[in-house]
Design a protein around this nucleic acid. Structure first.
Lengths: 226, 226
DNA sequence: AGCAGGTATATGGTATACAAAGTGCATAAG
DNA sequence: CTTATGCACTTTGTATACCATATACCTGCT
């Protein structure tokens, strides 16, 4: 019985409509910068490259459209969304508030196990930062924030913050790569961990908000105001 | 020349792909409760009813899927999303924070014209509430909050809050209809207007947050914990 | 009543067709 | 030499037909 159940579960988990496979591929390609902002996404071309028909491509594009990663131009098709300075500002303004909310809830709900995981990830982050391993820095930074989000038990909050992160992910890769000094980031993470450990939610909120604001400043500096 | 330009503009504005017409129709139908939660959305049936082919229907459903209004069941199709008590709680927790952010920004950026418009809408809201005109109460309440959101000049914030409002809109219609006493709502709106007028952003934030929290309590009371 | 098996129906995807709009390039006009 | 004009080509948007597979329904058997 447990085996059947597991098989069933595996089957359910493994089933992914082709449209979602396409959706995930395109999304990742856009986030990694394999498609430039403004670049056209042509159905036939994508269909041929991915070996599928136009139908799943079109459906994937509908989802990317709502996700904000592509914009539709009537009767011309989809192109990768440009990000203006204002978009960046708007996104980070909302994100700062929601990250603050997340740590506030985390102060109340985070378990000891989660806190330990956060400490561990933060240590990996520190090592990556000291070793200037940018890939790891990005990876552990995402992991760090993910632990905080998961501890809120608020699926809607998690979904929205992830979408907001996604929208500026392309920049993050660029500016993190250019950035030499991760010391500020390390210190900010340390402070946030401490605030959560002491369940000091007002402090944690302030720190989280400042953390995102600093990120905005960094992006501006390193990207050169776009 | 201005006439040509206007004609062109009109044409551009009037063009809506069929998929978007379908998307808007289905969305409105779901929000108005014309489709019950859990009800199946069948492509062929919808296509016949709306006089289009399956293609635009399928694409519209992809967007509804990402919007959270329908859930996909693998190899079975789309059905109208159920809303659990936890969903409601999660959504309102995020909304309370974002409404607070909105009024905070509004305190800084709202123009005198917008403030006047807010006062006017608030007066209409009061009249609707006194006259127990539920349709108008809902309409003016939406208008009231919209003016505040627009004054933030943050398109991302506006988009996210609108999505969050949408998710509980179905309940709003029900509970507002059942609600007899709008006095609390009127007072809360008055207080928020005053706080914005005096550019008191900390007070405004507190009021907005409480306003949404009260809404959560009301929904729970009137819907009976779902 | 419960189960087996067959039938109908829906999804998910492929392929094709075609009108309308957009793109690009060559050629004509100024 | 630059700017229109025109024409061929491509792409989107939608419709339609088709099929494999999965689910739902029904019917008859035990």
């Amino acid at each position: 019985m447990p085996m059947n159940q597991r098989d069933l579960k595996v089957n359910i988990n493994e089933y992914l409509p082709l449209r979602d496979v396409v959706f995930n591929s395109l999304r990742e390609a856009i986030l990694k910068g394999e498609f430039q902002p403004g670049e056209r996404l042509m159905e036939k071309q994508l269909a041929e490259k991915m070996g599928v028909s136009r139908t799943p491509i079109r459906e994937a594009i509908r989802k990317l459209e709502l996700e904000g990663l592509v914009v539709m131009i009537p009767r011309k098709g989809a192109e990768v969304a440009q990000i203006t300075e204002k978009d960046l500002k708007d996104v980070l303004e909302v994100r700062a508030t929601l990250e603050a909310l997340a740590v506030k809830i985390a102060c109340q709900k985070m378990t000891e196990e989660e806190l330990q995981a956060l400490v561990d990830v933060n240590e990996l982050f520190r090592q990556a930062a000291n070793g200037h391993d940018t890939d790891q820095v990005i990876h552990q930074d995402v992991a760090f924030h993910d632990i905080i989000f998961q501890s809120t038990r608020n699926d809607k909050l998690i979904q929205i913050i992830n979408n907001l992160r996604e929208q500026i992910y392309r920049f993050r890769v660029e500016y993190i790569t250019k950035m030499e000094d991760f010391q500020t980031l390390v210190e900010e993470h340390d402070d946030i961990v401490d605030a959560i450990r002491h369940r000091n939610n007002t402090l944690a909120q302030t720190l989280a908000e400042r953390h995102i604001e600093n990120q905005e400043k960094s992006v501006r500096t390193y990207i050169g105001l776009l």
